[in-house]
Nucleic acid binder design. Structure first.
Lengths: 220, 220
DNA sequence: ACTCAAACTTGAACACGTTCAAAACAATCA
DNA sequence: TGATTGTTTTGAACGTGTTCAAGTTTGAGT
């Protein structure tokens, strides 16, 4: 049987996520969550040290769903462009219910001190799960990606995914049509761009890009 | 003689910016600003509708300074890589005093509703000024940038600058060494990458990138 | 059944950004 | 000067996220 405490925790989280979706971030006050869940404000804080941690709960749930949906969407898809499209489109799909609230989410997430910060320690698990999606997209593709790129590419694509998410937040076109268009346009371009790596002159530039990435990354 | 009201406005702004630099964003409460400036809280709000607008004051001031310093640094510099470096390094230079406070600034700025949002309406002037720096960096360079790129490049570089600024905010290395390294490494790479535009196979990819950028931009 | 420590829950209180009715001041005209 | 109108200033009050001392409940050991 679920411990009573776990029940309360879930209840608070469920109510919070529901309210985030339905009335937005700012209107979802801690008092409102507590009241709706039938607990005291202090009790909500017993399980979640801050409103940010409730956002993190949302972040984790969305990432988990993305992993599931993306795996399905990647199944049987061969070429890199299509695989990339699948990974990105599903990412947007799972975020869709939260679009209106996206900007508050990003404002929360971008703060290095926030537990939700995708680069931070507290989201290591979620980030790894997300990264794994792109690793799978790269490794499962045929024709295969040039070996020298294979190591760093997933991380770069994940970074690009963060950029797409940022674009999506600002995208006010109906149904975020522009973001879809961006994905559809950019994915094949990335794939084609990578295939240029064989051209000698280009290859050198690629090497230097990777060198720079590694250099900047290591020295922390 | 300066109108009394203008004096009060300046006083509040000066005190706020000084406190932002010296004690950080969160500790600089509206009450503290008012007290330090010797006015009432309500009076500060008479001149600045929100704390965000005080941040905007900072944003504008930093951009103005960047324009001045960058113009000086670009003077006499020929090749694109060096010009790009100059534009970026000076950008980081003027932000330096605010580094500790950078993340709060970004968290404020990234919200579409914020007056400080660099993509938003309220910062059109500051954005244009910033864009002009990169336009000048591109147009003044010799050897000249390929004509077909010249139109869109400044905007893309400005976007990259936003990315560098974001990187800088997260950069905890001493003196933000890693950001400097990133600039020094990336600027020549961009210049070299652009020169590849002559290669036929690469040229097509470039065309498509530009097409995508325009397509996504227009459809808003 | 009783004890007692740990887990859980409460709600009043704090500092914050922000608002606003009212007061003080300034400038203009009769 | 006095009246009137517009500008500037005040500080108490509101709703927010968050804290915490104090209470209540639970469960293992006797």
């Amino acid at each position: 049987m679920a411990a009573k405490s776990e029940q309360t925790r879930q209840l608070v989280a469920d109510v919070a996520l529901k309210m985030f979706r339905e009335v937005g971030f700012e209107k979802t006050t801690m008092r409102a969550i507590a009241q709706e869940a039938g607990v005291s404000v202090g009790n909500a804080y017993y399980y979640f040290a801050s409103k940010d941690e409730l956002v993190q709960e949302l972040y984790i749930q969305v990432q988990d769903e993305h992993a599931v949906v993306a795996a399905k969407a990647l199944d049987g898809v061969q070429d890199l462009a299509s695989r990339l499209k699948a990974a990105l489109h599903t990412g947007i799909d799972v975020m869709e219910p939260y679009h209106q609230f996206g900007s508050d989410f990003i404002a929360t997430a971008i703060r290095p001190s926030s537990p939700v910060n995708p680069f931070g320690k507290a989201s290591t698990a979620a980030r790894e799960a997300s990264l794994a999606i792109f690793r799978s997209a790269v490794e499962g593709s045929s024709p295969a990606v040039a070996k020298k790129l294979r190591g760093d590419l997933p991380e770069l694509l994940w970074l690009a995914y963060m950029g797409v998410a940022l674009f999506w937040v600002y995208d006010q076109s109906e149904g975020q049509r522009r973001t879809r268009k961006l994905i559809d346009g950019a994915a094949p371009l990335v794939a084609r761009g990578l295939s240029l790596a064989k051209i000698p002159g280009v290859s050198k530039v690629f090497d230097d890009v990777l060198g720079l990435v590694r250099n900047v990354k290591e020295d922390s």
